[in-house]
C-alpha cells in the first residue's frame, strides 16, 4: 500500500518526546539479556521460538509486545513470569535473576483463571495469603481492591456468576493485590467482545495511572497496543526476534478520540507493515469462490 501518512516519528510532539526521554531515565525494573528459547519438535529437530531477545522495562512503563500469531509472545511472557525456562539468556528483576514464578510478578491470562470454588473476595485474598498476610488483613485489602474495581457488591459471588469482563477485572485486582513489581498480561482482553474490551482498556489505564506498577502487555491487536502503550516491542515470526522498538507519539492521558488522530494512524500503519508477514505463509489460503448467483451487479 502506498501510504499518504508521514513517518510516525516526525509526528511526536516535544512534550511526548520529553516524557519518553524521562521514562527511559527511570530505573530499570525488568530486563532480558540475549534470551533464546527452543522447543523440540515431533521430528526430533529443534524449533527456535525466541532468538536473542534483549530489552528493558522501566519503572511505571507500559510496554506492549506485539507480533503475528505464533511468533512466541506467550512463550516470552511465560518465561518472564517464570512459568517456562529459557534455553539460554538471562531475565533480571531489579537486577536479580528470575528462576521461578513468584508474587512479585503478577500475571493475567487470556483464559479466565479465577478459582471457581472461591468467592470473588476469596480469589483476591488468595495471593495476599500466599505472601503471608493473615486472614483479616487479606480480607480488608481484598475488599479495598474490589472497591477500586467497582465490584464490591459482588464480593460474595462465585466467578461463574460474573460476566467475562467482570472476571478479568477481578483477575487484575487479584494480580495487583500482593503489590507485584510488574504486571504481566497475556492477551487479557482477547476473549472479550469489542465494547467490553474498549471499556477494559480505559479501565486498565486508569488503574495503571494511579498505582506504582509496571505493565508488560502482550497482544496481537494493533489498536490496543498503540492505544495503551508507551513503547511497543514488535516481534518477527520464525524465529521470534525483536523487529523494532516503537515509541508511541501519543500524549497521556489517552482518550478514545485519539484513535482517529494522524499520530495514531501513522504509528498503527508503521507497525502493521512491520509485523505483516513479508512472505506468503504456507497456511494462508486463496479464495476460490465460484459465481453461483449469475447476477453480480448486485454487489
Amino acid at each position: 500500500m502506498n501510504s499518504t501518512l508521514p513517518d510516525y516519528k516526525q509526528m511526536m510532539s516535544p512534550e511526548v518526546r520529553d516524557r519518553l526521554a524521562r521514562l527511559v531515565r527511570r530505573p530499570v525494573i525488568m530486563e532480558t539479556l540475549n534470551l533464546f528459547k527452543e522447543f523440540p519438535t515431533s521430528s526430533g529437530k529443534k524449533q527456535i521460538v525466541l532468538k536473542d531477545i534483549s530489552f528493558q522495562v522501566h519503572q511505571r512503563e507500559f510496554l506492549s509486545i506485539i507480533g503475528p500469531s505464533g511468533c512466541g509472545k506467550s512463550t516470552l511472557i511465560r518465561i518472564l513470569a517464570g512459568l517456562e525456562t529459557a534455553t539460554s539468556g538471562e531475565i533480571l528483576l531489579d537486577g536479580k535473576p528470575v528462576v521461578a514464578p513468584g508474587a512479585e510478578r503478577g500475571m493475567v491470562f487470556q483464559k479466565y483463571t479465577l478459582f471457581p470454588w472461591l468467592t470473588v473476595c476469596r480469589n483476591v485474598m488468595f495471593g495476599l495469603e500466599s505472601i503471608g498476610k493473615d486472614r483479616d488483613t487479606a480480607e480488608n485489602i481484598a475488599l479495598q481492591w474490589l472497591d477500586i474495581i467497582g465490584l464490591a457488591r459482588y464480593a460474595d459471588y462465585y466467578p461463574g456468576q460474573l460476566s467475562g469482563g467482570m472476571q478479568q477485572r477481578v483477575a487484575i485486582a487479584r494480580a495487583l493485590a500482593p503489590q507485584p513489581r510488574v504486571l504481566l498480561m497475556d492477551e487479557p482482553f482477547g476473549a472479550l467482545d469489542a465494547q467490553t474490551r474498549t471499556q477494559m482498556q480505559n479501565y486498565l489505564l486508569e488503574v495503571w495511572r494511579n498505582i506504582d506498577i509496571t505493565i508488560i502487555f502482550v497482544t496481537h491487536d494493533l489498536d490496543e497496543a498503540v492505544y495503551l502503550s508507551d513503547r511497543i516491542l514488535a516481534l518477527k515470526a520464525n524465529p521470534g526476534e525483536i523487529n523494532e522498538l516503537i515509541e508511541v507519539p501519543l500524549p497521556r492521558p489517552r482518550r478514545s478520540r485519539m484513535l482517529l488522530e494522524p499520530e495514531f494512524l501513522a504509528t498503527r500503519e508503521h507497525i502493521d507493515k512491520l509485523i505483516r508477514p513479508p512472505v506468503k505463509r504456507e497456511d494462508e489460503c486463496e479464495f476460490k469462490v465460484v459465481n453461483m448467483v449469475g447476477d453480480k451487479t448486485f454487489l
Binding site: 513470569a81 517464570g82 512459568l83 521461578a100 514464578p101 513468584g102 508474587a103 512479585e104 510478578r105 503478577g106 500475571m107 491470562f109 483464559k111 483463571t113 478459582f115 488468595f126 495471593g127 500466599s130 505472601i131 487479584r174 494480580a175 500482593p178 504481566l184
Partner: peptide
C-alpha cells in the same frame, strides 16, 4: 492454567 495462576500469585 489455575495452577499456573496460583504460582504467579506466589503460592
Amino acid at each position: 492454567a489455575l495452577i499456573e495462576a496460583a504460582q504467579t500469585l506466589g503460592a
